[in-house]
């Protein structure tokens, strides 16, 4: 099958010898970066910090995610303790991060830090996963986690509850800005997984009726510091 590659590529080159006209639009043509041009047509991301936070609050509420705003890291710890108590968590998984670790370590239940000697069976038995994130997108209510910043791939998806602890300055306006931040931050060395989480896991597969917690977390908490 070694020549499948060259055969497909030459089929493509052959096919493209006849040019298809560029789509022409009723209004003005689009020149330059598609994403830059499209920004003002997409949902608003908020021009000021206040506008972004207002949008984020509204979007997360509609997504049935819980946003809790706290003034500082100490308050974040207390909020997490409150949730752990209410939900009667027995075992919580987390990763080492300055916002996450102190908050989780203060919990009274069993705690398990995921490291490279990762055990998926153990993680499956945890009630909650607590992670940090790369960014939060106000425009859509999406939380961007990555395999680098959020304790790998499974921590934010396997446990029944996902808690994200983030700071206000991580809130960006829109997806386009978020992508350019990511390229700026990681350059050519992107984490092996980047995932935009937009609300708790859901399905509508049964009669198109919304059910939360299909395979991923049933509940999503965002504790926003600052």
């Amino acid at each position: 099958m070694a020549n499948a590659r060259s055969e497909i590529l030459s089929r493509i080159r052959e096919a493209l010898k006849v040019v298809a006209p560029k789509p022409h639009f009723k209004s003005e043509p689009i020149g330059g970066s598609v994403a830059q041009n499209a920004k003002p047509w997409l949902p608003d991301g908020g021009a000021t910090v206040a506008a972004r936070l207002a949008l984020l609050t509204e979007n997360l509420a509609k997504l049935k995610a819980n946003l809790i705003r706290v003034p500082d890291a100490v308050a974040a710890q207390q909020v997490l303790q409150g949730i752990a108590r209410d939900k009667n968590w027995k075992k919580v998984a987390y990763h080492s991060h300055p916002l996450v670790a102190p908050a989780v370590e203060a919990l009274t239940c069993e705690k398990w830090e995921v490291t490279s000697s990762f055990n998926k069976q153990k993680l499956e038995g945890c009630d909650a996963g607590v992670t940090s994130c790369e960014a939060i997108v106000a425009q859509l209510g999406s939380i961007l986690v990555s395999s680098a910043s959020s304790g790998g791939r499974s921590l934010s998806i396997l446990p029944h509850v996902h808690v994200v602890i983030a700071t206000v300055d991580q809130v960006t306006a829109d997806l386009e800005g978020c992508f350019s931040d990511m390229l700026g931050r990681h350059g050519q060395k992107l984490p092996s997984m980047l995932s935009f989480i937009t609300g708790p896991s859901r399905t509508g597969d049964i009669e198109r009726i919304l059910v939360l917690g299909a395979h991923g977390p049933k509940e999503l908490y965002v504790i926003l510091v600052g």
Binding site: K62, L63, L190, M193, T198, G199
Partner: peptide, 12 residues
């Protein structure tokens, strides 16, 4: 939906 619940990019 505003965004599908999980939009994930894998690079390796």
């Amino acid at each position: 939906q505003p965004m599908t619940c999980y939009n994930t990019l894998y690079s390796g």
